[in-house]
Nucleic acid binder design. Structure first.
Length: 403
DNA sequence: AACTCACGCAACCGCAGACCT
DNA sequence: CAGGTCTGCGGTTGCGTGAGT
């Protein structure tokens, strides 16, 4: 309404910048410095909106910009910062010299976010959501089209960046992916051509999650063969997300779990999803707690420990003896600190972050929560592979954000 | 070889807070 | 203090591209 447009749009050029325009802009800023974006185009002889000039300068022409692939370290930084800061790209960019918020935002949206999740429809109606593990870990399965990043193509001699995503992420009902359409952060996850769209019907290379009105069935028959422990007809809550861990490469299982968990548990995240880990009894069976509380909307179900993976949580036989009911959601949903003390107090153990060493080798007995193997004691199916630092962080987040 | 399709990324848009008058 | 302007930010769009069919 009362607000004048940032510039007179009539007669202004839009779209890609030419080398000539770049030159003009650079020369002008070199001579006059940044700022006064509104008047800059006119003074510099550019038929561009001031905003456009600013964007071009900040995202592309500045001399201090770093070019090339995002390194593994940078990626890690982005993930960590995003966990705590959410989509505040400019703040994240401030921690990555030479990277722009736009670049990080694009990288997140095209590389990282789809590794982590894409589930839960915006309208809240029941329906299947399929998570594609190709997106998560870059499993080399066939894909139809797509291009690799330009920078990756330029440096044909493999860098540290993982292979591009290889499969499609499909939603049974196309459209937005995250619940954030209730207005909030995260909306970009489903932006544009990203896995939205609901195109295609062929099974994804990774995982299938079924549609259903209340009952979700693992469609392993339509996905690649696997030895899922999760029974095919096992009922899951609607919109639960089934992750076929057989599709994960060795050593990626815990990274993926961690990524999922950090996303779900992020204080900035409003999804409220839970992470479930199935044992050979499946999800929701073999324990009273799971029977009471089954995966539901927005939940993530890790359906099995991949073959060959050293599972940090107990083998099935041990799980029968131990109480295997504790799932990650217990942590997410409850006051973390309270939960932590409760769990370990019940088990008569010290909190694992108090002393990993002493409790790590404790034998697994009925009703106890620690593991029989050389792993830090953790709740069954929950927080396996996390460091005490991670847990401390979550506790910190919880205390910070729950107030 | 032609076509399709999904991808990456540059650029655009609208909003909101900071700043100015 | 109010209203206008500027700037920065996050979300979104759409084009160019190249792998797969």
């Amino acid at each position: 309404m009362g607000r004048a447009p940032c510039c007179e749009k009539v007669g202004l050029k839009r779209g890609r910048w030419t080398a000539e325009e770049d030159e003009k802009l650079m020369n002008y800023i070199k001579a006059n410095g940044e700022g006064s974006w509104r008047s800059l185009p006119k003074n510099a002889g550019l038929l561009r909106c001031g905003k456009s000039c600013r964007l071009r300068w900040i995202n592309y022409l500045r001399a201090d910009l770093k070019r090339g692939n995002i390194s593994a370290e940078e990626e890690e930084t982005i993930i960590k910062l995003h966990t705590s800061l959410g989509n505040r790209w400019s703040l994240i960019a401030a921690h990555l010299p030479g990277r722009t918020d736009n670049e990080i935002k694009n990288y997140w949206n095209s590389h990282l976010s789809r590794r982590i999740h894409s589930f839960k429809r915006a309208d809240g109606e029941g329906g299947a959501v399929i998570m594609d593990l190709g997106k998560i870990v870059g499993i080399p399965c066939k894909r139809r089209g797509g291009r690799t990043s330009r920078s990756a193509m330029k440096k044909s001699n493999g860098g540290t960046v993982a292979a591009p995503p290889t499969a499609k992420c499909r939603h049974a009902h196309g459209g937005a992916v995250l619940p954030s359409d209730e207005k909030g952060h995260g909306g970009a996850e489903g932006s544009g051509s990203d896995c939205g769209g609901g195109h295609g019907l062929q099974p994804p290379c990774g995982v299938a999650l079924p549609a259903g009105t209340g009952t979700a069935k693992a469609q392993s028959s339509s996905s690649s063969s696997n030895n899922n422990m999760l029974a095919h007809d096992e009922p899951l809550g609607e919109e639960a997300l089934l992750v076929d861990v057989d599709q994960l490469l060795p050593n990626e299982f815990w990274e993926t779990t961690k990524a999922l968990a950090s996303e779900l548990f992020s204080p900035c995240d409003d999804m409220g999803g839970d992470v479930w880990v199935a044992d050979e009894h499946g999800v929701g069976e073999g324990s009273t707690e799971q029977e009471r509380d089954r995966p539901g909307a927005g939940d993530v179900v890790l359906d099995a420990v991949p073959a060959g993976e050293q599972p940090p949580f107990p083998q099935a036989s041990e799980m029968e003896e131990c109480n295997s009911a504790v799932t990650m959601d217990r942590w997410a949903d409850m006051e973390l600190e309270e939960m932590a003390s409760k769990l370990w107090d019940e088990a008569g153990e010290e909190w694992p972050w108090q002393n990993w060493e002493e409790t790590a080798a404790a034998p697994c007995g009925s009703g106890e929560l620690h593991l029989a193997q050389q792993q830090p004691p953790v709740p069954m199916g929950g927080f396996c592979g996390y460091s005490d630092g991670d847990i401390h962080s979550w506790l910190l987040f919880d205390s910070l954000y729950s107030s």
